[in-house]
Design a protein around this nucleic acid. Structure first.
Length: 439
RNA sequence: GGGUCGGUGGCAGAGCGGUCAAUUGCAUCAGACUGUAAAUCUGACGGGCUGACGCCCUACGGAGGUUCGAAUCCUUCCCGGCCCA
């Protein structure tokens, strides 16, 4: 790995300079493709550049699949480069055909804007949006006012349909059906890049490898329309052990960053339950730990990998939910799973944040009066969110997978006599806990 | 617009008049084994009721129809692929 000498790094506590950014991304396993590695290395080394990555406001929260890009951007930014996070408020109104079986649902402006706000908040945990360091823009700003005729005349000429049809992005969709609406997505994303090039001197776009053709189209448009040079870089699409895109818990839940959609405890658990073979990769991608430390942590195999997983979970949770959230989640997890400690985290003890050791467990409430009258175990499991229906709850109990206070729960009536410290501690299977508080 | 093929449970994909709540694979859930891992084995896997045998309801794109009986046949509408224009 050849290190390119950087002239000088701008202010802030940088241990490595602007020219090291490429190496950092490479050694951490982010990179998938680059349109011109030598050229990009030169550009990076020649001083801070402006780069961008896009996020689609299709949901009211980011999920961990989006973090890979955020982390890659964060590394670039930490190396001294200027980040632009583009929220695809305009493009979302079209629908990206990439890797979708069906056309995306078209959303209203209001939904999109609300989502964009949330996403910005979440991204600021990873990226610095202070003046001069980074900014966030919504491409609706320029896309919504495009005039069709003008756009065709000024830019349509630079796009070759032959080329587009050959793009991997569209090939699959050509088999199953692709509307003209979606087909235009590439043009708009390319135009975004051009617009950012003009407005902010942005010369690099980074995105998931599924965005490769779109990003390339942008850098080509910049060359054709303005004679400028811009680079395309893609990061790996991270998969889980089964080869599927990562992002679902064991319970099939999407791993959201929004604590209201997924409790930090569950977020933490997601990382703890990661497959052995992925720990090293995930540490490199989802934490800022130095590579040497990651190698040490994961040098041993087998059960010795557990401290590494705990570290991964802690660091990733701390990034998404703050240190305190991570500490609470960790303390709760340790308490609930037998209190075994595997090494220590950065603070040497994993403080509980002053709360009860299981305080971070997802909780539900139930009226005390209903417990006094007695509630069936079936209904209790359903209301706790551990079973989708009473039939499912029945099956769970029959299968021996329902527990109350760590004792197998039979199909009986649960009353206030079962309360411990004013709550019921329910468990589904080996590790899905839920507290039900009597109120 | 014409021709043709097709729309089945989370996905893939059987069924092609009764024995179909619907074969099978994947995914998922539980149990055993473990390290809150993987692999493996076992069971479950539309909803409701039941201690249980079992019973009831709703489902095979939508709406009608034929029939004792339809996911299976007919009509029509909607949606999609392919070929032609």
């Amino acid at each position: 790995m050849v290190s390119v000498t950087a002239p000088s790094a701008p202010a802030s506590a940088l241990t490595r300079g602007v020219g090291d950014a490429y190496d950092i991304l490479q050694e951490r396993g982010f990179l998938y493709q680059c349109s011109d590695e030598a050229g990009l290395r030169r550009a990076l080394a020649a001083g801070p550049i402006t780069f961008y990555g896009g996020f689609d406001p299709t949901a009211d929260s980011l999920q961990i699949g989006n973090i890979v890009l955020a982390m890659a951007m964060a590394h670039l930014q930490r190396a001294g480069h200027r980040a632009i996070a583009v929220v695809g408020g305009g493009t979302t109104m079209i629908g990206d055909p990439t890797d979708k079986t069906d056309a995306r649902r078209i959303m209203t402006r209001e939904e999109i804007e609300a989502n964009a706000q949330v996403i910005k908040g979440q991204l600021s945990r990873y990226l610095d949006f202070s003046a001069g360091r980074g900014l966030m823009v919504d491409n609706a700003e320029w896309l919504l006012n495009l005039n069709y005729i003008d756009f065709l005349r000024d830019y349509g000429r630079y796009f070759s349909v032959n080329e587009m049809v050959r793009a991997e992005t569209y090939r699959a969709r050509l088999e199953t059906g692709l509307t003209f609406l979606e087909f235009n997505y590439m043009l708009l994303q390319a135009y975004d890049f051009l617009e950012l090039f003009r407005r902010h001197g942005c010369v690099l776009q980074i995105g998931g490898s599924d965005q490769w053709s779109n990003i390339l189209a942008g850098s080509q448009l910049i060359r054709r329309a303005d004679g400028g040079q811009a680079f395309a870089l893609t990061n790996v699409i991270v998969t889980d052990a089964t080869g599927a895109k990562m992002g679902k818990t064991a319970g099939g839940l999407t791993v959201w960053l929004d604590p209201a959609k997924m409790a930090p405890y569950d977020f933490y658990q997601y990382w703890i339950n990661v497959d052995d073979t992925l720990v090293a990769q995930y540490l490199a991608l989802f934490t800022f730990l130095p590579m040497e430390e990651i190698r040490d942590l994961t040098a041993a195999g087998g059960a010795a990998l557990r401290p590494a997983k705990e570290r991964l979970a802690f660091e990733a949770t701390a990034l998404a939910h703050g240190r305190e959230g991570a500490e609470k989640a960790q303390a709760t997890a340790r308490s609930v799973f037998g209190g075994a400690t595997y090494g220590t985290t950065t603070d040497g003890g994993g403080g509980a944040g002053g709360d009860a050791p299981i305080s971070a467990l997802p909780a539900r409430e139930i009226a005390r009066s209903r417990l006094e009258a007695g509630i069936s175990a079936l209904d209790l499991l359903v209301e706790a969110g551990l079973a989708d229906s009473r039939n499912a709850a029945r099956r769970l109990i029959e299968g021996g997978g329902a527990y109350l206070h760590d004792a197998r729960l039979e199909n009986r009536t649960v009353t206030t006599a079962d309360l411990q410290d004013g709550a019921l501690l329910l468990r589904q299977g080996k590790k899905r806990y839920r507290r039900v508080m009597a109120v």
